[in-house]
Structure formats: structure tokens, C-alpha cells
């Protein structure tokens, strides 16, 4: 089965772009290709001036570690770690010392309004709060590109809207690509790419 076909789009630095479409339209696949998690059979994927199809798996991992932040629908936080430790986790791979990791994670959690939830574990947080922790984790390495895969999928309408607003607010220096079937994404994004059956139907 082909998830994406003849798909081509450019995103400019600093842009906030919504990749909107119904379930099965291929938006998550497109996001994973941009993030170097999936390789296209044909074509090129230029991200931050690098063709991902030319990179090895470990080189793509390094690129993600240094330049890309990920936000997932189901948050994917480690249940045993506190909010602060979850946020600080990507910094461990970079060899950042503990004191600096905690300081940076605290700053990010304060930015997403969770300054009073630093030591709470994911199980002690609401869905909206967990997704805010995930946003802080995605931004803690100060990436150029943030990829969000259905970030509001697990949240109620109001919380979803708040999380989207928060995302575009705190990621003001980043390029953000949000894959969603939530039409309200249009309200917060600079541009919307509509996807249907693996093809881009509208660029508005």
C-alpha cells in the first residue's frame, strides 16, 4: 500500500504549518518522513539543508537529536520519571550535566505553565498537562524544527485548543509542522496543507 505519492511541499524557516486531513490521509507518514523516521522509496527529503535520503540511520538519529523536536499524540512520557526528568531526557544524550539539565527543564516547564508540577510524575498529571510536558521535552534542545503528530488527539476540545495555542506560542523561534485532523489548527497556523489519500489537495 502506498501511503504518500507525488507529494511535494516547502516550508520556510519560522513558519507554522498545519498538515490537515482525515484519518488515513497520510499526514503522520509525511511527518515521519520529514523527521527521518521513515525513508521514501523515491524522491528526496531536504530538511535544514540536508537530504535525509543520503543519511544513514544513525546520522538521521543525530540530526533529530540536534535539530528536531517531536510531539506525539499519546505523549509518550516515561511513567517513572518526574515531569522535569522527562523534559531533561533528550539533554542526557548530548552529555549535558545534571544541574544544567534540570535548570533548562525547569525553564521550559515554567514556559508551558507547569512550574508547580516539576516533580509530578505523568500519572499525576492531566492529559493536557502531560502534553505540555511533551511540548517542553520537544523544545528543551532548542531545535530548529518541531514536528507534532496529532498533538490534540487525546485531549478534549478546550484543552486541545489551549495546547495548540501554547505550542505556537512557546515555539515562536521554531519552524513547526503539525499533523492533525483538528480543523481548529487553521486558527493558529500560518499555512495549511490539506492531505487526502496520500496527496496534497490544497495549500492555503
Amino acid at each position: 500500500m502506498t501511503a504518500l505519492e507525488e507529494i511535494s511541499f516547502n516550508i520556510h524557516a519560522g513558519e507554522i504549518v498545519g498538515l490537515v486531513g482525515p484519518s488515513g490521509s497520510g499526514k503522520s507518514t509525511a511527518l515521519h518522513v520529514v523527521g527521518g523516521l521513515l525513508e521514501p522509496i523515491e524522491g528526496t527529503v531536504d530538511v535544514l539543508g540536508t537530504d535525509l535520503t543520503e543519511l544513514s540511520s544513525s546520522q538521521r538519529t543525530r540530526l533529530r537529536r540536534d535539530h528536531i523536536g517531536f510531539i506525539f499524540q499519546q505523549f509518550h512520557l516515561l511513567p517513572a520519571l518526574s515531569a522535569r526528568d522527562n523534559v531533561a531526557l533528550p539533554l542526557v544524550e548530548r552529555g549535558v550535566g545534571r544541574r544544567e539539565r534540570q535548570q533548562r527543564a525547569t525553564e521550559l516547564l515554567e514556559q508551558v505553565g507547569l512550574g508547580d508540577r516539576l516533580s509530578h510524575r505523568p500519572g499525576e498529571l492531566s492529559g493536557g498537562e502531560q502534553q505540555r510536558v511533551a511540548i517542553a521535552r520537544a523544545l528543551v534542545t532548542d531545535p530548529e524544527l518541531v514536528l507534532a503528530d496529532e498533538p490534540t488527539g487525546e485531549l478534549d476540545t478546550e484543552t486541545g485548543a489551549q495546547v495548540l495555542e501554547l505550542l505556537v506560542d512557546v515555539a515562536e523561534d521554531q519552524t513547526v509542522l503539525v499533523a492533525t485532523h483538528d480543523e481548529r489548527a487553521i486558527d493558529v497556523t500560518d499555512r495549511v496543507l490539506r492531505l487526502l489519500d496520500g496527496e496534497i489537495t490544497t495549500d492555503e
Binding site: 523527521g35 523516521l37 538519529t61 543525530r62 540530526l63 533529530r64 537529536r65 540536534d66 528536531i68 523536536g69 517531536f70 506525539f72 499519546q74 509518550h76 512520557l77 516515561l78 511513567p79 531526557l89 533528550p90 542526557v92 544524550e93 521535552r137 520537544a138 534542545t141
Partner: peptide, 22 residues
């Protein structure tokens, strides 16, 4: 139990060694 979380950590750029270590 944590396979999706571990896959997510891999996606955000953590090495297999670090994940295996944790």
C-alpha cells in the same frame, strides 16, 4: 510495557545504548 515510550525516545534522538541503559 514501555515499548511505545522507548520508540518515542528513539524518535527524539536518544541512542539505543542510552535507552538500553535506562
Amino acid at each position: 510495557q514501555q515499548r511505545e515510550e522507548l520508540a518515542a525516545l528513539r524518535a527524539i534522538g536518544l541512542s539505543r545504548g542510552l535507552i538500553a541503559g535506562v
